[in-house]
Design a protein around this nucleic acid. Structure first.
Length: 235
DNA sequence: GCGACAG
DNA sequence: ATCTTGTCGC
């Protein structure tokens, strides 16, 4: 039951995995930070026009300089539908394949999605962290669940994100006037150290630099993969 | 029953 | 996420 057949099975598995999530400070010192993202594409009209694929990308940077030191990617077919709260079942499989291809395994991993700021306490970052048993941090561009006070427009401002009476993360304004980020621990991380890592990754833009670069790489590879597979079908 | 709803 | 052109603003 590694890959659930239905959303119902997925939720059952989530509740099981949620019990394995560990909340503790991230390593005080570490050498490599990983960041991942996915791109999706479908083939042009035709018999297989509805097939969906995804490209998972993982970038590894040295810390705290953030120079790119390794990279891996993997193309796979999408096997699970997008359901809010079940995103990890769509993205984790391809991510694990990309992880296998890395030469340098990062010490801390940044994910494009929620950590424990999730209805069942196990968003994408937590799920991946538990499966690989590595420290992960969730950094989402939108809120999935929870409530919070209004946030000042100045960059650097933050406010706790609460869910069911307890703090699950932080809403963080990475740049003045932009929409905030939703930061929460994934696995083997806590709220404070998660925010600190993300904070140190903010460059000139809203999205932390490692995730931003992973996103660009994923977009590039997705475009290439689509062209390649399209031309293969024509032959 | 009516909204909300990561990517 | 993805499909898509121009366009308002710093």
């Amino acid at each position: 039951m590694f890959v659930p057949e239905s959303p119902k099975d997925a939720i059952r598995l989530q509740k099981e995995l949620a019990g394995k999530v560990v909340i503790c400070p991230l390593p005080a010192n570490f050498r490599f930070l990983g960041a991942s993202d996915l791109g999706y594409f479908s083939l042009p009209a035709g018999d297989r026009g509805k097939d969906r694929f995804c490209v998972a990308v993982i970038l590894v940077f040295d810390w705290p300089d953030l120079n790119l030191v390794d990279e891996a990617s993997h193309v796979a077919s999408v096997t699970f539908p997008y359901v809010p709260g079940l995103l990890s079942f769509r993205e984790v499989p391809a991510m694990l394949e990309a992880w296998r291809k890395l030469c340098i395994k990062p010490d801390v991993f940044l994910c494009d999605g929620q950590g424990i700021a999730h209805p069942r306490g196990i968003g994408l970052a937590s799920h991946l962290g538990v499966i690989l048993d590595i420290p992960t941090v969730g950094c989402a561009k939108k809120r999935l669940c929870g409530t919070h006070d209004e946030l000042p427009l100045q960059k650097g401002s933050r406010t706790p994100l609460f869910f069911q009476g307890r703090q699950v993360g932080v809403v963080y304004r990475s740049r003045t006037g932009v929409k905030p980020l939703y930061i929460s621990p994934g696995h083997r991380a806590d709220i404070d150290s998660s925010v600190k890592v993300v904070e140190k990754c903010i460059g000139k833009y809203r999205i932390p630099e490692p995730l931003r670069q992973a996103h660009r790489r994923a977009a590039d590879l997705t475009r290439k993969a689509k062209l390649f597979r399209s031309s293969e079908i024509l032959c």
